[in-house]
Design a protein around this nucleic acid. Structure first.
Length: 769
DNA sequence: GTGAAGGGGCTTTTT
DNA sequence: GCCCCTTCAC
């Protein structure tokens, strides 16, 4: 529904303010150098931000090109652009609405030459960073000093987020400590290698942009002139480098006053301190920007009062916060449903059953989400959801772009786009197998080092290095293929469309023999890998459709910066599974918070960190406040980790929710605050189900802890309506309906004791009687 | 140089 | 429980 925007009077009586409460109106209309909008969960901040932008355009206070809006994910950016477009039409197209990382890439691609990089630089993800560090750590045998790839990587990341590069670190480091000295060496080597590869890691994207602006004011100046209105969402999760970037952009340029800055945030939702987010950025905003005005949004438009009461009660236990209380004009809604499973599988079965129940009552699968603290928890959930034929989708986790075959294919593209990137070229050197082993690779690397050329260039000199004819031929063929692909990617002349990325990738995959190797393989997994390559080819097609003038480098940029939440597809018709971190900024009609146990939430690793438990509590708070109508809290008495079963205890956070808000279908039998936290044993667990039973009669649960994780295959078991079946866990029942075909055939079975279930015939542990 | 088999270590969360 | 790395035979 398109909304006609009328000219706004100074008091602001335009359509833009329709339906807004007084606080929200103030946030839209306030004009000044700095505005902090403290936006509680579900308080309509996106509405406020988009209307604020629209209002600036409408009153001619800003051109579209003068607006820079920063969001946390690309998906959020896309949504914001959509909503602004709804309000102001295509004026929205001229604005920069993007994530910190995307905005910085855009700047760096334009300005890279100024400080010694080429515009086609590669963006290294955490996997690339790890691969590179692995090589360096090995080279210096740093692991014997206790410097692991993981902790070196984390430390470098932390330093970069603090804008401390290798050289400034070297000024402060205590060189008498050999471990510190070695760390410095690695940090330097890592920096040098990235530079030589014409590559930036994630942290560099921000930090290098700051360095660029500081070192070259004439580069920063056009951006300072251009962006007159800067808006930053999720400000509580910005780190120091991002903060510095904002400061750089809001400096006055000659003859131009400082840009106006609007930040939106909620310190109760700060969950990224582990990644360098500095909560002080928001807490000290008023000191940083002395003329700042603060607007507080507390009215919630998302959740029922019951859900908000739970959220308020939990977060109130964080002592160092400004008091804030979410409230709604909507009703109390349903009680929160609690469930304690005997095992992770039992818990998962509860989730699956409740999802089916919701679905039967008319809720779409896509309106339901399941959250968890760690990615490892997905396994049990997946097993049960598959069996129960619940359509689901996991966001994040082992991401598409992290799969080996996809990284291989991308490495081919990167080798073309950025020939300086030795990491990419080395990755494809012997992928698929061409008989080029580590010895040959080292020789090529040495040649490159000796002659001061890139690894890519060294390939061209294979004939001079005295390799055998087979090896030489293999190297030359690869080199020629890369040249052929490179020739396809030269930017087209004005008015001509570029050669589609699809064609470049297809050529590389064909002529390199990559797809042939997968097709010829006997490994059944390679069939799936082949499908993934085809999927990637489809992605390139899609990219070209959306960006007819998009070049290879644009494709690589886009794929390098996809975030977990970006994968969310509102039309998918599936239940969404994700970590609590990924859930930030999203909302669902029904939310399942699983694994609410000590050592999981709060996570064991966080308990002894300063600020750890508070951050975990905020994470719980974020999870609770994602739910609009229905909230489920579940946990398990035992959980498998490392292949071993261990006893778990209810999370301390559970006791912080007033008991009357929760309807326990099966209670953990908490004895009060502090029931959790104890190590093991059966402490804190009651011996049986306490079912308060507001819902339907609780089926017997003796079977539940016997749910096994075995994958089976019933092949083409034929079932018809009326057949009796026996299920390993649910006992005997009668088939009520059959839907779907082949591998997706689903049987609806009314079990004698366990209720009605949907089962995926192929994998369900059933036999026909 | 390649592939199979066995041992060690690990998991917090992510742009 | 699984992944990754090392080791060993061909």
């Amino acid at each position: 529904m398109t909304q006609l925007v009328q000219p706004m009077s100074v008091e602001g009586s335009s359509a833009l303010l329709e339906g807004l409460n007084p606080r929200q109106r103030e946030a839209v209309l306030y004009r000044g150098p700095a505005l902090l909008i403290v936006a509680g969960a579900g308080s309509g901040k996106t509405s406020v931000l988009t209307r604020r932008i629209a209002s600036l355009l409408e009153t001619r206070e800003a051109w579209p090109s003068q607006v820079l809006a920063i969001t946390f994910t690309n998906k959020a950016a896309g949504e914001m652009r959509e909503r602004v477009r709804h309000l102001v039409g295509h004026a929205a197209d001229g604005m920069w609405i993007s994530t910190f990382h995307s905005a910085c890439v855009r700047i760096l691609r334009r300005e890279a030459e100024v400080f010694g990089y080429a515009s086609g630089f590669t963006i290294y993800d955490s996997g690339d960073q790890r691969a590179l560090l692995k090589r360096i750590v090995k080279q210096y045998e740093a692991d014997v000093m206790g410097l692991s790839v993981a902790n070196v990587g984390a430390r470098i990341s932390k330093l970069k987020n603090e804008l401390i590069d290798a050289e400034s670190f070297s000024r402060d480091v205590n060189l008498a400590d050999p471990k510190e000295a070695l760390f410095l060496t690695i940090f330097r080597e890592y920096t040098r290698t990235l530079q030589a590869a014409n590559a930036f890691d994630f942290d560099d994207l921000i930090a290098q942009t700051v360095y660029l602006f500081r070192a070259f004011p004439h580069v920063a100046e056009p951006y300072r002139r251009r962006f007159r209105h800067i808006l930053v969402d999720e400000y509580q999760d910005t780190n120091h480098a991002q903060y510095a970037l904002i400061r750089e952009l809001t400096k006055p340029a000659p003859g131009v006053p400082a840009a106006s800055l609007t930040v939106v945030g909620d310190s109760d939702q700060s969950i990224y301190a582990f990644r360098g987010a500095d909560i002080r950025n928001i807490i000290e905003f008023e000191q940083d920007f002395p003329e700042a005005t603060v607007v507080l949004l507390e009215q919630n438009y998302r959740s029922t009062q019951t859900i908000l009461d739970a959220a308020n009660a939990v977060i109130a236990n964080n002592f160092d916060r400004k008091p804030k209380n979410l409230f709604t004009a909507g009703g109390a809604g349903d009680k929160i449903v609690g469930f304690t499973g005997y095992s992770g599988h039992d818990e998962a079965q509860f989730v699956a059953d409740e999802i089916e129940q919701l679905h039967r009552n008319g809720m779409e699968y896509r309106e339901i989400a399941v959250f968890y603290r760690t990615n490892a928890q997905t396994r049990a959930l997946e097993e049960i959801l598959i069996r129960s034929a619940v359509p689901y989708r996991i966001l994040g986790g082992t991401k598409f772009y992290e799969r080996a075959e996809i990284k291989d294919a991308m490495a081919y593209l990167i080798s073309v786009a950025n020939p300086a990137d030795a990491l990419a070229v080395r990755r494809i050197l012997n992928t698929p197998k061409r008989g080029i082993g580590p010895a040959t690779e080292t020789q090529l690397a040495n040649f490159a080092e000796r002659n001061g050329v890139t690894f890519r260039e060294a390939l061209r000199h294979a004939a001079e290095l005295g390799f055998g004819p087979k090896v030489t031929k293999a190297i030359t063929a690869l080199s020629d293929l890369l040249d052929e692909a490179t020739a396809m990617t030269v930017p087209p002349a004005e008015g001509n469309a570029p050669i589609p990325v699809f064609d470049v990738l297809a050529l590389l995959m064909q002529k390199s023999g990559y797809v042939d190797a997968l097709r010829a393989s006997k490994d059944p997994q390679d069939e799936a890998r082949m499908e993934n390559i085809e999927e990637l080819l489809a992605v390139t097609k899609e990219f070209q459709r959306n960006n007819p003038d998009g070049l290879l480098i644009d494709f690589l940029t886009e794929t390098a910066l996809v975030a977990a939440a970006d994968e969310l597809d509102d039309t998918s018709g599936t239940v969404s599974l994700m970590t609590l971190h990924t859930a930030k900024g999203l909302e669902f009609r029904a939310v399942f918070l699983t694994g609410i146990e000590e050592d999981l939430l709060p996570h064991r690793m966080s308990v002894n960190e300063p600020g750890g438990p508070s951050e975990e509590r905020r994470l719980f708070y974020v999870g609770i406040t994602r739910a609009r109508e229905r909230l489920y809290l579940s946990l398990a008495m035992t959980r498998n980790s490392y292949g071993e079963t261990s006893v778990s205890a209810p999370s301390r956070f559970l006791a912080e929710i007033p008991g009357e808000l929760i309807d326990w279908r099966q209670s953990p039998g908490m004895t009060g605050p502090g029931a959790g936290g104890r190590a093991a044993g059966s402490l804190g667990w009651s011996s049986g189900g306490v079912g308060a039973g507001a819902g339907q009669a609780k089926p017997k649960t003796e079977w539940t802890n016997r749910v096994t994780g075995k994958v089976r295959d019933n092949g083409d078991l034929e079932l018809a309506i009326g057949d009796r079946v026996r299920h390993d866990d649910f006992g005997e029942g009668r088939v009520q309906a059959i839907t779907g075909t082949a591998a997706k055939r689903i049987a609806e079975v009314q079990f004698d004791t366990a209720g009605r279930k949907r089962l995926l015939v192929k994998v369900a542990p059933i036999v026909k009687l």
